[in-house]
C-alpha cells in the first residue's frame, strides 16, 4: 500500500494532512502513533475509503478492489465495539459476510470458527448487552476478521479496556495476524502497545501530520509477554517517546 502526498483540509480551514507519504508492505504490522488530533483517524478513514483525500493518491498493489458479491478486502475496528445490540454474538460476527451475500450456513461456520479463536466459542448465542467490555471488543475483532480481510485497520481498538484485558487482546491480535497474514495498520496512544505489537512504528507530528520517525523495531519477531521487561524494549520505547515529544513541540 502506498500513500503519497495525501492532503485533507476540513471545512473551516483545518488542515489535517498536508502531503503525507507512507509505504506499507503487504503483510506487515505497522503501528501509528501521534499527538491527539493530528489526523490519525482521518488517515485511516481515507485508507478505508470512508473519506476522500483532497489531493494525493492511495494505491494498493495488488489492488484491493471490492467487487460486489465478493468478500470485502478491508476491515475496520473502532475504539468501541459498535455491535448491533439486537443481534446475537454469532449474527454480529456474521454480518459482514451477510452483507456480502454469503449463504447462511457458510457465514455461520466462518463466524463460529473466528469466535472460537478469540475465546468466545461458548458465547455465540448471547447478546451484546450480556457481555463485558473486553468480550465485546473480541466480538468486534472477530467481526472484522470474518471476511479474511487483506488489510485490517484498527483505530485505538483496545483503549477503553483495562491493562490486563488489553494485553490479552494484543496477544490474540498478534496470533490472528500470524495466522491470517493480513496487512495491519494499528493506531494507538500507547507506546508500549505499539512497540509490543508492531514490526514498524510510525510516529506522526501534530497537525498537519508529518512523519517524525519511521522505525523498524529492533526486537525479536516472536512477541512474548516477557518482552515488556526486556532492555531492548525499553530502548525502543525511549526512542518513540523522544520522537513523539519532538513531534508535539514542532
Amino acid at each position: 500500500m502506498r500513500i503519497s502526498g495525501i492532503r485533507r483540509t476540513f471545512s473551516g480551514g483545518v488542515s489535517v494532512l498536508d502531503g503525507l507519504d507512507l509505504d506499507v508492505a503487504a503483510g506487515s504490522f505497522v503501528a501509528l502513533v501521534g499527538p491527539s488530533g493530528c489526523g490519525k483517524s482521518t488517515l485511516l478513514r481515507m485508507v478505508a475509503g470512508l473519506d476522500r483525500p483532497d489531493a494525493g493518491t492511495l494505491t494498493f498493489s495488488p489492488p484491493l478492489e471490492h467487487t460486489p458479491g465478493a468478500r470485502p478486502p478491508i476491515a475496520f475496528v473502532f475504539q468501541d465495539a459498535h455491535l448491533l445490540p439486537w443481534r446475537s454474538v454469532l449474527d454480529n460476527v456474521a454480518l459482514p459476510l451477510e452483507l456480502a451475500g454469503v449463504p447462511a450456513p457458510e457465514r455461520h461456520a466462518s463466524a463460529h470458527a473466528l469466535l472460537q479463536e478469540v475465546g468466545l466459542g461458548d458465547a455465540t448465542s448471547r447478546y451484546p448487552a450480556q457481555l463485558s467490555g473486553g468480550m465485546r471488543m473480541r466480538v468486534s475483532l472477530a467481526r472484522a476478521l470474518v471476511t479474511r480481510p487483506r488489510l485490517l485497520l484498527l483505530d485505538e481498538p483496545f483503549a477503553a479496556l483495562d491493562e490486563l484485558t488489553r494485553n490479552r487482546l494484543d496477544d490474540q491480535l498478534l496470533a490472528l495476524w500470524k495466522e491470517l497474514g493480513m496487512t495491519v495498520l494499528f493506531v494507538t496512544h500507547s507506546l508500549s502497545e505499539a512497540a509490543y505489537l508492531a514490526e514498524r512504528v510510525v510516529v506522526l507530528s501534530r497537525r498537519p501530520a508529518r512523519v517524525m520517525l519511521d522505525r523498524r523495531l529492533a526486537l525479536p519477531p516472536e512477541r512474548l509477554p516477557a518482552l515488556r521487561a526486556d532492555p531492548g524494549f525499553a530502548r525502543e520505547m525511549g526512542l518513540l517517546l523522544q520522537a513523539l515529544e519532538q513531534g508535539e513541540a514542532a
Binding site: 470485502p72 478491508i74 448491533l84 439486537w86 452483507l99
Partner: peptide, 24 residues
C-alpha cells in the same frame, strides 16, 4: 460508526435500511 461499517462492507441501501436503520 455503524453507518461507516455498513458502507465499508458495501451494503446496499435496502440492506442498510432493514438491517441497521429500522432495527436501530
Amino acid at each position: 460508526a455503524l453507518r461507516d461499517m455498513f458502507r465499508l462492507y458495501g451494503a446496499r441501501r435496502v440492506a442498510t435500511l432493514w438491517k441497521l436503520e429500522l432495527p436501530a
